[in-house]
Design a protein around this nucleic acid. Structure first.
Lengths: 194, 194
DNA sequence: GTCTATAGGCAGATAGAC
DNA sequence: GTCTATCTGCCTATAGAC
């Protein structure tokens, strides 16, 4: 009763799915509306109906990705209590992305940062900040209950972890070698065990 | 006596200079021959004389960058003996790049990896491997003389360091904040002090 | 070595019919 | 919502004169 005509599922989301994949594999500047349209059996013009400009598509892409990521963090908080296990689960989020031969969406966009609309730039920075804040919370919890040990402030440690994971993804992709990422991630988590 | 007509200095190198800057700031897929030609007061066609295809330009770019980087590593080896100081100097190479608002050339290309010619792909991977091998050597030296301490193998630690530095650059650029990089770098080096 | 001129294609985007 | 048709502009690349 909600929709008179049920589309493929939801065209706008289908566009976002395909575009997201293309950005994560090739980058924002290396895919076109035509690439997405072809994949969905639509035309260029149909895409412009849903997302009038490429910048708007890009902003929608980050917004949806950020919401999904935030949801994953909530799920970790609800299902795990031990800070060290939370960090493991966090690193596993990255590993999953890498397994599908993708780069983190915002990590990819960070490389292309200078070419993005200001709306996209702000959204990318916000994504990293939210990740860092969540991680800092976990780190504080671990330091307080004695399950984690690190030097410096929690936010500094959090930034260091996000940087390392993004960098490990970036380079592992150049070698088509997920083990490189896994090794870097476990090294990172070993270092903060007491 | 060497050249009948001394050019601006050397057109091919001037092209590489401008292209390198554009790639490090915007990415390989976000600059054009026209961008470079405009900057140098040349035409599109003149660039194609020196670098027939964009892929060949890209390969020359990485080759020159890799040689320059290798030279910097030799200089570190010749001027510093202490492994910890060598690592400091290594991180400083990255900091210098970041200060000019650039990403590491190969870090940028790693993001765009899937869109590169196979020649460029191989050269990017080789760049990282050479860096890792050099770093592993420094780490072994430090472990042997007791100035460094780390868990796992030297090559694993080296990969972890390269990943972290590249990731820290990537993200620091999104915040226009070099201190973010400095903080991550010093955190990294503090962690391997005995 | 560098130029003018141009080919041929693809990019993002819009108008208007259905 | 999706289509066809089309615009304008930029892209990489080449031919041939100087």
């Amino acid at each position: 009763m909600k929709q008179a005509k049920a589309e493929r599922i939801d065209t706008a989301n289908g566009i976002l799915d395909v575009a997201e994949h293309l950005v994560q594999v090739r980058g924002f500047n290396a895919f076109s509306y035509a690439d997405v349209a072809r994949e969905l059996g639509l035309t260029n013009a149909a895409l412009h109906y849903h997302f009038p400009s490429k910048a708007e598509l890009g902003e929608a892409l980050i917004a949806r990705y950020a919401v999904r990521f935030a949801g994953a963090l909530v799920e970790i908080d609800e299902s795990l209590a031990d800070p060290l296990r939370k960090l493991d689960a966090y690193a596993e989020l990255y590993a999953e992305v890498l397994r599908s031969h993708r780069m983190c969406l915002c990590g990819m966009l960070a490389a292309e940062y200078e070419t993005l609309s200001s709306g996209m730039q702000d959204a990318v920075a916000l994504f990293f900040e939210k990740n860092e804040k969540w991680l800092a919370g976990v780190l504080r919890q671990g330091r307080d209950d004695g399950t984690l040990r690190f030097t410096g402030s929690a936010i500094e440690e959090a930034r260091s972890i996000v940087s390392s994971l993004e960098g490990a993804m970036l380079i592992a992709r150049s070698f088509g070698d997920i083990k490189r990422f896994q090794s870097a991630a476990s090294h990172l988590l070993t270092a903060i065990r007491p």
